[in-house]
Design a protein around this nucleic acid. Structure first.
Length: 559
RNA sequence: GGCUUCUUGGUCAAGUGGUUAAGACGUCGCCCUCUCACGGCGAAGACAGGAGUUCGACUCUCCUAGAAGCUACCA
């Protein structure tokens, strides 16, 4: 045990440059004036240059909670690990979030002198003076000490603990530098040995306490007793120390973070206690999971193995950001889907998002569900909105084909109206994402390489040829939809097919098929596909000439 | 190995001692004067397992199993 006097002296030696006090920073960053239910939340990524679905998932929760009641949502960059830093990462984060209509109120990305940034700097590397002030204060009060252990020494300790089946780590009698004399610290320092600063933990092994989590409820967790590293040998804080200082001084009220942090919550509790900080509320979220074919079980989505975790993956396929957001919200808050269905016309930002409705266990990312949501949401847009979205996507991902797709805006819009069912009693729900849309309607643009023949005819080639030739012969472009269809029925009759589907079903043995089989032949010849919206409308969008050409091509292909 | 958390149909999930255990997606069937889509109707399908507590347990307790996470001078 060092005396108060010795602790002060050690602090002077360790932090000769610190000329501020904790009170100085407390005063500089006063508590925020907040409305009743307002929360201060944050997104705090490390600048790896990679933002994934999981980041978006939790950022969305942060943003909704903050903005639900007029709180603050800010961006802090956790760049304490030099190895991970990537240039331009901040812009990447901001742009990725903006793409999903998620804006920060404050933090990294705003100019330094912006009045909104009163709690900065927001890059941890620029905050070392603050960290050192509090670190010094801890040393002065005997709550932190320098540790000069080498990696080898730490390894030796670990092996000893493993052999004795005791908890691994730096604590109590295993903390080699916890109880040294001032002279020993001074000597080691003088010898130029590298050192880290460790917490002198006040916790007791085996003791438990109740930790309240906003999502999981009251949990019983073990008290922290590890002398964890506060400052690394380069003087930069670890996540734990930076978290305590930053979230306190930035006046965060609700820390939402991944469940992987739950085990270090006891450490954070002790840190806040020892620093004299008020503990914020915590919400530990479950991760997005994926079904693993190999193990047959759920597992956390991994950046390396799962391309679908990347946001770019969805951008490339042309998923509308709004649909992604709706899907994530249904996963994030169990009652969102019901609310959204009951209030289809309300802005989704009006939804009363609540941490309490977040799931305790990890959800499997479900592409079927995503697609269903895409279909529903896209069907609510106007053809102009879809057109604009497609244009933005195509310009970036299919610039060559885009020339043909967007050569005649009216034509594309007519196609969209058809596929969306604009003007029909009910909208169709065919559209999922941009790439899927263009693959659906590609036959309207043979210049892009879509020359048909995707689906095979089910009838024999001879019959198909005869039917198509007869169809072409009797075709009149001025026929309206019903006249056109009557002619198809007549064709059916002529070739031994039943003109009425119902009649056919009652007596399928009496016919070669029904008028629907005749329609299929024309449909496949014209579009290359067995399934499309109303054929007559398609023909009248592409024009008689195109139709005849495509049928002729199909006939040639059958020869 | 140790510690922590989680566990309702294939998936997302309501549910807080007494329910015929919601709903959505997916799947299947039927209907909707051409396929598909839309829409309608219907079907199959679940409380991880075992002990308790209780008149009564999906709900409370314990054990087991499975899954996930943590066990760094990474976050």
């Amino acid at each position: 045990m060092l005396t108060e006097e010795e602790n002060r002296k050690l602090a002077d030696i360790l932090f000769p440059d610190v000329d501020k006090t904790p009170e100085y920073w407390e005063k500089k960053y006063p508590y925020r004036k907040l409305a009743k239910k307002a929360e201060v939340t944050r997104m705090a990524p490390s600048p790896t240059g990679f933002i994934h679905l999981g980041n978006l998932y939790s950022a969305l929760a942060d943003e909704r909670i903050a903005h639900r009641h007029g709180g603050v949502f800010y961006l802090r960059i956790e760049d304490t690990d030099a190895k991970r830093k990537v240039e331009g990462a901040v812009e990447l984060v901001i742009n990725a979030m903006r793409y999903f209509d998620i804006e920060f109120d404050e933090g990294a990305g705003l100019p330094d002198d912006d009045p909104r940034n009163a709690y900065g700097p927001y890059f941890q590397r620029q905050r070392v003076e603050i960290y050192h002030t509090f670190a010094r204060s801890l040393v002065e009060r005997g709550l932190a000490y320098p540790c000069f252990s080498t990696e080898e020494e730490l390894d030796a300790v670990r092996r000893k603990q493993e052999a004795k089946e005791e908890p691994i780590g730096c604590y109590g009698k295993y903390a080699l530098w916890r109880d040294r004399s001032l002279a020993e610290y001074e000597e080691a320092l003088k010898s130029g040995k590298e050192h880290v600063l460790r917490l002198r933990s006040q916790g007791t092994p085996g003791k438990e306490f109740v930790f309240h989590d906003e999502i999981k409820g009251d949990l019983t967790l073990p008290e922290n007793f590890h002398d964890i590293v506060l400052l690394k040998s380069d003087g930069i804080p670890t996540y734990h120390f930076a978290h305590a200082i930053d979230d306190h001084l930035m006046r965060t009220t609700l820390v939402i973070r991944g469940g992987e942090w739950l085990d270090s919550a006891p450490t954070h509790v002790e840190l806040f206690q020892v620093l004299g900080f008020k503990l914020p509320k915590y919400a530990h979220t479950a991760h997005l999971m994926k079904f693993d074919e190999v193990t047959g079980g759920k597992r956390k989505l991994s950046k390396r193995k799962d391309p679908e975790l990347s946001l770019d993956y969805y951008r490339k396929d042309g998923y509308h950001p709004y649909c992604m957001k709706v899907y994530l919200l249904t996963l994030l808050n169990s009652n969102f889907e019901e609310w959204h269905n009951q209030n289809p016309d309300k802005d989704i930002n009006e939804f009363p998002f609540d941490v309490k409705n977040m799931s305790k266990s990890g959800a499997l990312f479900d592409k079927d569900k995503l697609h269903n949501i895409c279909k529903n949401e896209l069907s609510r847009l106007s053809e102009d909105e879809v057109y604009d979205f497609l244009e933005g996507w195509a310009r970036e991902f299919e610039p060559e084909k885009a020339k043909y797709w967007f050569a005649d805006p009216e034509k594309l819009k007519a196609i969209l109206r058809l596929y969306m069912g604009v003007g029909m009693k009910r909208r169709r729900k065919d559209l999922v994402n941009a790439s899927q849309i263009f693959s659906l309607i590609g036959y309207f643009f043979p210049q892009t390489g879509d020359t048909g023949g995707k689906d095979p005819f089910s009838a024999d080639a001879d019959t198909v040829k005869q039917v198509l030739s007869a169809y072409l012969e009797g075709y009149c472009h001025d026929d309206d939809n019903s006249v056109w269809f009557e002619k198809l029925k007549a064709l059916a009759e002529r070739f031994g097919y039943c003109p009425d589907v119902k009649t056919y079903r009652k007596n399928p043995e009496s016919y070669k098929g029904s008028v629907s089989d005749i329609a299929e032949m024309v449909r496949i010849a014209v579009t290359g596909r067995a399934n499309t919206p109303d054929l007559w409308s398609i023909i009248h969008i592409m024009g008689e000439k195109s139709m005849r050409e495509r049928i002729q091509t199909a006939l040639d292909g059958l020869a």
